[in-house]
Amino acid sequence: MQTVRVKKPAGSRQEEGEGEGEGENERVGEREGERVGNVVSVLSGSRKRRKGSRGNSILTRQDSSFWMFTVPALLIFLIIVQIPFFIGIFYSLTDWDGINSAPDYIGFANYRELVNDTRALGSLSFTLRFTAAVVVLSNVLGFSLALALTKGLPGTNAMRVIFFLPNIIGGLILGFLWRFVLIQGIQAIGKTTGWAFFQTPWLGDPTTGFWGSVVVFVWKTAGYLMIIYIAALLNIDKSLIEAADIDGAGKFQTLIKIKVPLLFPAFTVCLFLMLSWAMKLFDVIFALTNGAPYGSTEVFALNIYKEAFVYNNYGYGSAKAVVFFFFVAAITIVQVWATKRKEVQL
């Protein structure tokens, strides 16, 4: 059940007649797949051990070369992620403003305040709606692109690169670019053509702000998911497809009954990635709308940032961040657990 082991059988390359550039993309997908696979197996580690399947989880590995390679990375992880995390928990129990050298300990007052913070709850609701929209749209689009681009059509490699490219652009730059396109670009088109669709104030009201953000983020991420799906699709044993064909399954039936169940490890990864990316999204929104208009597109990460750094309530901001951590962790664990149950073992 090792998730997304996307190494291709040796023969498949010749069969598909693929070029060099595309192999490159696949390796990217493969690496990410493995990384996330590890996260997933850590998350579900206990279940695995109980079942007595292959016991090579990182927790039980003994040989010294393993530790030699892991310790430096672990150390860095400890210093830049773990320790600040606990410092953050400490600050969440204080009234620190971010500058004062002697913050006061105030217990759980910050956490109690959160219940009545309508602005924070509003931004949480935006984050959830946004996440729901992008998880669905990005996966549907990524999967559709992957299906279309594994058919061996001419120009496939170029298309894969083009769809993957938005992922390489940094979130901030991408946000500013799209801000220009949506506000200046679309209005310019609206002025010349007079079409009502182009005259709507993009990013100027909550609805267009929401869909504008969704479009930009889906545009950024769909190509990445596409690469993972392509890798998984190419990994499906050709004999299974052939067998289905001989048994008289149509194209659609093959997709639903054979491919989709076999692709579940990829779904696990892609859903997990999108959920955690979308819920923790900051940079794209910061550049694109910065919460405007009137805070209606304020994702929770941006709300935390503003609370801590703009409103000078570092302690309260930390409390929000801690709560948000457990919230995101809970949702993603449930998702991974749910999709992993559906994975097919051969």
Partner: peptide, 10 residues
């Protein structure tokens, strides 16, 4: 602190 941002939203 923070009023300039929130007043803008309102």
């Amino acid at each position: 602190d923070g009023a300039v941002n929130e007043f803008s939203d309102a």
